[in-house]
């Protein structure tokens, strides 16, 4: 498991984190290639099942990056996302998994550096946790309908 490169899915809000990632790019601030960004119109659009499916398909970590608390373009989308992340964390705990594999992160559109920093930090955290526990199952993860 040494030197393993985790796969991380980041659901990024179009109005903040996605723009911040863009800014990081244009400022030439690098962030780990482990992080695969999925743009969403608002983190409120991310449901618990999306996070679960990412894990089911083998993601080692998932985070939802939304606007700063109180700054949601759609008022409460990021607050809802925070609760959904917490719900998935609870499910993981109930299964005996590390709940730290999923996280909610907040930032504004101008925070290119914060985007890169959180991407680094989250990647490091997932590296320390090791691969998605389903890899212990020693079977190919099959596509699940």
């Amino acid at each position: 498991m040494e030197n393993y490169e985790p796969e991380i899915v980041a659901f990024c809000c179009h109005y903040c984190a996605y723009t911040a990632a863009d800014m990081a790019g244009s400022k030439r601030i690098s962030y780990p290639a482990n992080v695969k960004i999925i743009r969403v119109p608002c983190t409120g659009k991310v449901d618990a099942i999306h996070i679960m499916k990412a894990l089911e398909k083998g993601a080692d970590g998932v985070y939802v990056a939304g606007c700063l608390e109180g700054d949601c373009h759609f008022k409460t989308g990021n607050a809802r996302a925070r609760l959904r992340v917490a719900r998935v964390q609870k499910i993981l705990e109930d299964l005996g998994w590390e709940k730290e594999r999923v996280a909610m992160i907040n930032m504004s559109a101008g925070m290119g550096e914060r985007f890169a920093k959180t991407a680094f930090e989250f990647t490091e955290k997932i590296k320390s946790l090791g691969p998605n526990p389903i890899s212990q199952g020693k079977i190919e993860v099959q596509a699940v309908s």
């Binding site: 299964l95 526990p133 389903i134 079977i139």
Partner: peptide, 8 residues
Amino acid sequence: HLNSLKQG
């Protein structure tokens, strides 16, 4: 699914 995948 997650639970059973973990157990192979």
